[in-house]
Amino acid sequence: MTRLIFRDDAYLREAPATVLAVSEAGVELDASLFYAQGGGQPGDTGSLVWDGGEMAIANTVKGEGETVLLKPAEGAATPPVGAAVTQRLDWDRRLRHMRMHTSMHLLCSLIKGAGVTGGQIGADRSRLDFDLAEPPTKEWLTEQLNALIAGNHPITTSWITGEELDANPGLVRTMSVQPPRSGGKVRLVRIGAEENPVDLQPCGGTHVAATGEIGRVAVTKLENKGKQNRRVYLVLEEG
């Protein structure tokens, strides 16, 4: 099991670790600063540095069980097993993913009652698909999203058991993918006050600490992707 440093502190940009294994599948550390691709969020990139070497990280993926594997860039050297390494995160890319991911939770809060049929977070553009006949207009969604962002609502996390989630199925918005369960527990991401949150749903991804950090966003396009499937595209306004 890899200890997930990013889960405790999504703002940490550098951290030490020890190499546990190296294989064609990737490099496994005892603790990962890097988020592993999943839930629509891309894997982090960055580098590992050790005495006498450096490895550029092209992607981070999930390994067997609850392990994280770092994929070296083509031609990059890999560290020896047992080496003490420093993990360095591509922070600018991660921060954009954090801002995008949080804004997508806000988008969910505006389209109430519609299941999420798919989604993809990108540094430049993201999308969410909803099981919905008629979505609101992109102008209305843009206005409401930016109002929520300007409210600077705090983002916090908590944990419940798998049994508690099963007893509250309405917390899960995704229709085809179940939220990750780590050791029988499920991580909840809350936007806003505990007693009356703007949004509350299971999520294993990284987020900003308050909605004001997202900056202005825009819904740029709505697409019909089937009889009951509507795709909503979202961008950060600075490009």
Rank of each mutant, 00 (worst) to 15 (best):
D9G: 05
E14R: 13
A15V: 08
A15W: 14
A21I: 02
D30N: 15
G39I: 13
G39T: 09
M55E: 02
T60Q: 04
K62D: 00
G65L: 04
G65H: 07
L69F: 03
G75I: 09
T78K: 09
P80C: 05
V81S: 12
G82L: 09
R93M: 11
R94M: 01
M98Q: 14
T102R: 02
H105C: 07
C108D: 14
I111S: 01
K112N: 08
G113F: 02
G118P: 05
I121H: 06
A123M: 04
D124T: 15
R125V: 14
R127Y: 12
L128Q: 09
L128M: 14
D131W: 00
T137I: 01
K138A: 14
K138P: 03
K138N: 12
W140D: 15
N146C: 08
I149E: 03
G151C: 04
H153Q: 13
S158P: 05
S158G: 15
G162T: 13
A167V: 13
P169S: 07
P179S: 12
G184N: 10
V189Y: 11
V189H: 08
A193Q: 12
E195D: 15
V198D: 05
D199W: 05
G204F: 09
V208C: 06
E223P: 00
N224S: 14
K225N: 08
K227C: 00
G239W: 10
